[in-house]
Simulated assay, not measured.
Amino acid sequence: MNFAALMAPLGPFGAAPHLAVGVSGGPHSLALALLTRDWVLARGGRLLALVVDHGLRPGSDAEAASVAALLRGQNIPAKILPLGLPPGPRLHERARAARLSALLAACDAAGAPWLLLGHHRGDQAETVAFRALRGSGPDGLAGMAPVRATPEALILRPLLSIAPARLEAVCAAAGLAPIRDASNTDPRFARARLRQAMDPDGPMAAALSFIAAGYAHRRAATAAAVATRLAQSVAFRPEGWARLDRAALGQDATARAALSAALRTIAGAIHPPPAMGVAGLLARGHGTLAGAVLTPSGILAREPAAVVPEWRGTTWDGRWQCSGHAPGGGGWPPDLPAIVRAGLPGLSPAPLLFRPAGGPAQ
């Protein structure tokens, strides 16, 4: 397996790169750690393996410790991340989200700007099939992206085109015995049932992976067109609002996708707003949707009624982080539109210093 060729399109990485890799102890993430170790050492860089102790079953802490010890025995520094996930519904879904959050936080703390994950061709096929069953559109059928940006690190998935049997062979060649997670074959979970119905090394998985690559190419072309349209028609402001030029935005499919992206950014939403709602808002030229408001004059702001008024620790409305007192008094710029000001935190006479989450202080 030419791992350098798999990594090449995910770069550039520069000299002496510092990477992190998520390792569950299963054969695929373990193989990724071994391959990445050799790749990093050849470039004079550093690798940190991150092992999540999910705490979902008795002995998970000991299992995580054994995985970390195995990695250290392979000259791979390892850190254990206790998850402490509470029981309840949607366990697998919540566990995946919490695990990724913990991995990214660890990357941020370690100063590692790249996080590698061991998803392979079978995982990609499973994702595409699962989304197809749920009625996903073209973007969903593109499956997992090989590169995804987050505030903490770039998420890289270099193994999406690799059959899992080849990764099993990497572990076998190193004389390592991976850990097998019984929940991956537990028929109580929909993904496990789908996994059992489809051979991850077989022709169906290969075909679904090929389909995902085609849709991913389309998704990349659409993203480039949307980025261009946004640059031409939307001016984002540091206080968390934007001014929209409706003539430059247009009324076509790219305009709908660009408006959807702008709405999601302004509202701080995880998922895009409903497509029919976006089309209606674009046609009207004003209105509210998914936590954002568009005025007839082209101001796109957080909908005041959607703002969460109470403090959440040091974060207000999931968007503003309080970091201390601003020197010399003052407040928000006096020329802010009223609709924007209505969706911002009020400042005291000795104002607090706010900054957008992940952004510069305001």
Score class of each variant (00 low, 15 high):
3 F>H: 12
4 A>W: 10
7 M>H: 03
10 L>P: 09
15 A>H: 05
20 A>W: 02
21 V>N: 03
26 G>F: 12
28 H>A: 14
34 L>N: 12
35 L>Q: 12
39 W>S: 11
40 V>E: 12
45 G>K: 10
52 V>P: 15
54 H>K: 12
56 L>Y: 07
56 L>G: 11
61 D>E: 14
68 A>M: 14
68 A>N: 13
69 A>T: 13
70 L>K: 09
73 G>W: 09
76 I>E: 02
85 L>M: 03
85 L>P: 02
87 P>V: 10
90 R>D: 15
91 L>I: 13
92 H>G: 15
93 E>L: 15
95 A>L: 12
95 A>I: 10
96 R>E: 14
99 R>G: 05
99 R>A: 13
102 A>Q: 04
103 L>Q: 04
103 L>T: 10
103 L>H: 02
104 L>R: 01
107 C>F: 00
107 C>S: 04
109 A>Q: 13
110 A>T: 01
114 W>F: 15
116 L>K: 04
117 L>V: 03
121 R>A: 13
122 G>V: 09
122 G>D: 08
129 A>E: 14
140 G>F: 10
142 A>L: 05
143 G>C: 06
144 M>P: 00
149 A>H: 04
150 T>G: 01
151 P>S: 02
153 A>I: 03
161 S>V: 02
165 A>N: 04
173 A>T: 09
176 L>W: 03
177 A>N: 13
177 A>F: 07
180 R>I: 14
180 R>A: 15
184 N>K: 12
188 R>D: 12
189 F>E: 11
195 R>A: 15
196 Q>E: 14
198 M>S: 12
198 M>F: 13
200 P>Q: 07
202 G>R: 05
203 P>R: 11
206 A>K: 01
206 A>L: 10
209 S>N: 08
210 F>E: 10
211 I>P: 00
211 I>V: 14
212 A>G: 10
212 A>I: 06
213 A>S: 10
215 Y>A: 11
223 A>T: 01
224 A>H: 05
228 T>V: 07
235 A>Y: 00
236 F>S: 04
238 P>M: 06
241 W>C: 03
243 R>V: 07
243 R>A: 15
248 A>G: 09
248 A>V: 10
249 L>H: 03
250 G>F: 00
251 Q>E: 06
251 Q>K: 10
254 T>M: 04
256 R>K: 06
263 L>F: 00
265 T>D: 01
265 T>L: 06
271 H>S: 11
271 H>C: 09
272 P>S: 03
277 G>E: 14
277 G>Q: 13
278 V>Y: 11
281 L>R: 06
282 L>S: 02
285 G>K: 00
287 G>D: 11
289 L>Y: 02
290 A>Y: 08
294 L>Y: 06
294 L>D: 10
295 T>K: 02
295 T>G: 05
296 P>L: 00
296 P>C: 00
299 I>V: 15
303 E>C: 14
305 A>Q: 15
310 E>M: 12
313 G>R: 06
317 D>E: 08
319 R>I: 03
320 W>Q: 01
321 Q>Y: 00
321 Q>I: 12
321 Q>A: 07
326 A>N: 00
327 P>F: 08
330 G>F: 12
332 W>D: 09
332 W>E: 04
337 P>M: 01
347 L>W: 05
347 L>P: 04
348 S>R: 05
351 P>A: 14
352 L>I: 00
353 L>F: 00
353 L>G: 00
355 R>W: 02
356 P>Q: 08
357 A>D: 01
358 G>Y: 05
361 A>R: 09
